[in-house]
């Protein structure tokens, strides 16, 4: 690696980058709401990761469920006196609190995996089309346009009605509806970068296109993509919940938050509110927390784009 390239890739002096990070941190911490969102999000992540140790019951181990304990209101003790159901039990005698922790886990996994995959696919497509332009760009962007002209929920619905139920299938469907957002944003950002001097310089040095794309252009496209990724994470979790609610998402024996709400919906009408209500609160907290963070990130990282 030559010295010139080194400087190119570091994006300026190391000190400058550090100070930018500090500035970013300061700006981020300035918003109390965003910090609150961050804390909530961290809390949710911890609860999800440590669910097996925190939850009083494994709601997926159906052999431990005793049907006579079903539909207990919050604060009841199970029939054998062994367990306190702080948030009650559902129609299958699952402890609602435990079910929420495990459901949170599934919702977050689905969200994180699908967004990461969509990020990878979308960013690649976007960068490639921006860099090469011409027919590649026209073709890729045409697909993106078609994809975006269909409402996400419809595409996901039709896809899932084909694929069937399952955590993995929901992830495929979510990737399929989300990659286009990343592709469009990555292309937009990369086109701006493409014409900047450092890229011209790198081209003059006849570096391979992969290298220019990934080591020079891509790092500078990350901020807008990060904003989209955050917002899409919330979107993915909400969409997964919606699909599960409509009955085409995860299977009933491995409930995500949306599935829990859907199960509880039938009971809610007759006044057994807790089965749907508490998972609903949990879902709202996660989604709002992520959006608070994402909203503020957007304000900091691309102030022009306020919508």
């Amino acid at each position: 690696m030559t010295a010139a390239e080194n400087i190119l890739e570091s994006g300026g002096q190391p000190a400058m980058r550090e100070s930018m990070l500090r500035l970013f941190a300061e700006q981020f911490l300035a918003s109390k709401l965003a910090v609150l969102g961050m804390i909530l999000l961290a809390l949710c992540l911890c609860l999800a990761i440590f669910a097996p140790w925190i939850a009083p019951q494994n709601p997926f181990d159906i052999g431990t469920l005793n049907i006579m304990d079903s539909k207990l209101p919050p604060g009841s003790v199970s029939g054998d006196g062994a367990m306190m159901h702080w948030l009650g039990t559902d129609g299958q005698a699952r402890d609602v609190f435990s079910a929420i922790l495990y459901g949170l886990r599934i919702s977050l996994i689905v969200g994180l995996v699908s967004v990461s995959a969509a990020f990878a696919i979308g960013a690649t497509a976007g960068l490639i089309s921006a860099y090469f332009g011409g027919r590649t760009e026209a073709l890729l962007m045409r697909i993106v346009d078609i994809q975006l002209s269909f409402p996400a929920i419809l595409v996901a619905l039709v896809l899932l009605s084909v694929l069937g139920k399952g955590v993995d299938k929901v992830i495929y469907a979510l990737v399929a509806v989300q990659w286009a957002y990343f592709a469009r944003a990555a292309r937009g950002a990369a086109i701006v970068e493409r014409n900047k001097e450092y890229v011209q310089a790198a081209r003059c040095m006849s570096l391979s296109w992969q290298r220019i794309l990934w080591r020079h252009i891509f790092p500078n496209c990350i901020p807008p993509l990060m904003v989209i990724a955050t917002i899409d994470l919330a979107h993915a979790i909400a969409l997964e919940a919606t699909l599960s609610f409509l009955g085409v998402g995860v299977p009933v024996t491995e409930p995500s938050l949306g599935m829990l709400i859907s199960n509880g919906f039938e009971y809610m009408m007759s006044g057994t509110y807790w089965i749907a209500f508490f998972p609903g609160i949990a879902l709202a907290l996660v989604v709002v927390a992520i959006n608070l963070v994402g909203d503020h990130l957007r304000d900091i990282l691309n102030p022009r784009n306020e919508i």
């Binding site: 181990d61 159906i62 052999g63 469920l65 049907i67 129609g91 299958q92 005698a93 069937g164 139920k165 009955g247 299977p251 009933v252 024996t253």
Partner: peptide
């Protein structure tokens, strides 16, 4: 769907692990 889940839980109780598959 609720009945199927309960039956699965009862079978699990005698050691028969039961995967419930519900669909339209």
């Amino acid at each position: 769907q609720r009945i199927a889940q309960s039956v699965a839980a009862m079978w699990a109780n005698i050691g028969v692990k039961t995967n419930v598959e519900t669909m339209a």
